[in-house]
């Protein structure tokens, strides 16, 4: 199971990264906090202090088009906000 799906790069998360040393990821729904901690530590080579997780439910989406109504549902996902030990940092832009 691949735990980390992608990092969350938004203004909100950047702000938190700089002030609170917290970074957000979208993770596999089945992963628990311990697994997430381990995955992040291994991937970025840092130490994690704590992990908070939350599960976002998918939303019903309908769109009216010429050829009738398209109805669907967005995916549900799990979001993890990882607080790092003071002094550690993750640089999402390191490979540009």
């Amino acid at each position: 199971m691949k735990v980390i799906i992608k990092p969350i790069v938004t203004e909100k998360m950047t702000e938190q990264g700089e002030t609170l040393n917290r970074y957000g990821f979208i993770v596999d729904k089945r992963a628990n906090k311990l697994e997430i901690k381990k995955a992040v530590e291994e991937f970025y080579n840092i130490s994690v202090e704590s992990v908070n997780t939350m599960v976002y439910g998918g939303k019903e989406k309908t769109r009216y088009t010429k050829s009738g109504i398209i109805a669907g549902r967005t995916n549900s996902f799990k979001k993890a906000v990882v607080t790092l030990v003071e002094g550690d940092k993750i640089d999402f832009y390191s490979n540009i």
Partner: peptide, 13 residues
Amino acid sequence: FRPGKVPAGLVKK
């Protein structure tokens, strides 16, 4: 990025 919202890491780089 909006002005003033560029990540510090990027500016430093």
